[in-house]
């Protein structure tokens, strides 16, 4: 890979998805806070150092009220990373950023710690608990029609399989690998959430751009001998490799 490409890549932004808690206070706030205290009593370190998103859709708070709630949560060692469900008319100056497009993974139950031991739960524990069922059901998206120019398929959760062709000017973005059984004329971006193990397979490569985990090659960088044949792309260190598939 040339140094020119390297320079450009140092400027690239990576999309990453993380698992966080979303907590939804319900009115009256004082009562909700004491309920919260009661439920995390047994495992005081449950939220320690773990990012939390505050869902305000069930309450109607003024900016000052939100500031107060944030301070109350901070006191309980709950750090708020972002806010969701806020009425767009409320000014967010000085507040954590607004979050959109979150998806539920599962409802977490605060673990009961037996006895009087109050050993803090390691911060990774909730993450592992939340991700475990995800690994058990590998996510994949099947597209049975051609993907036309101008269309974008984004599936960060896992693999994308396209039975038809991907047109010039169309784009497939997958968290996992991408399989295209027709001709790939557009762009394919695999491992988009930071998965260097993702690969791209296509029946016929005429791609405009191939990318895995933000390392990319444009049509000009793809060996002419490979074009119009079946190919796969994978990542070797920081180099995107492409080879014929047969």
């Amino acid at each position: 890979m040339t140094s020119v490409v390297r320079q450009r890549q140092s400027l690239m932004f990576r999309a990453r998805s993380y698992m966080t808690f979303s907590v939804m206070p319900r009115p009256p706030i004082a009562e909700w806070l004491s309920d919260l205290d009661a439920s995390v009593e047994a495992s005081r370190g449950f939220f320690a150092g773990y990012p939390v998103v505050l869902n305000l859709s069930a309450v109607n708070l003024s900016p000052n009220g939100i500031m107060q709630l944030l301070a109350d949560l901070e006191e309980r060692n709950i750090r708020v990373l972002g806010i969701e469900g806020l009425d767009p008319s409320v000014s967010t100056t000085g507040l954590p950023p607004l979050m959109r497009g979150g998806r539920d993974s599962q409802t977490l139950v605060v673990p009961e710690v037996s006895g009087d031991a109050v050993a803090p739960v390691p911060a990774v524990a909730p993450a592992a608990a939340a991700e475990a069922p995800k690994a058990a059901q590998p996510a994949s998206l099947m597209i049975e029609t051609p993907v036309r120019s101008g269309q974008t398929i984004v599936f960060i959760e896992g693999d994308v399989t396209v039975l038809g062709s991907v047109g010039s000017g169309a784009e497939i973005v997958a968290g996992g690998s991408i399989h295209i059984y027709g001709t790939l004329r557009g762009r394919a971006l695999a491992g988009a959430a930071g998965n260097a193990k993702a690969r791209i397979f296509c029946h016929r490569v005429e791609a405009e751009l191939l990318a895995i985990d933000s390392f990319y090659k444009t049509a000009d960088d793809i060996d002419e001998a490979l074009r119009r044949g079946p190919a796969q792309a994978w990542l070797e260190g920081e180099t995107l490799k492409i080879s014929a598939l047969n």
Binding site: R148, S149, G150, S168, G169
Partner: peptide
């Protein structure tokens, strides 16, 4: 010709 064909591909996507 290629530009017309790509635009048609775009239109087919919109029709669907």
């Amino acid at each position: 010709e290629v530009s017309s064909v790509r635009d048609s591909d775009r239109i087919i996507g919109l029709l669907d």
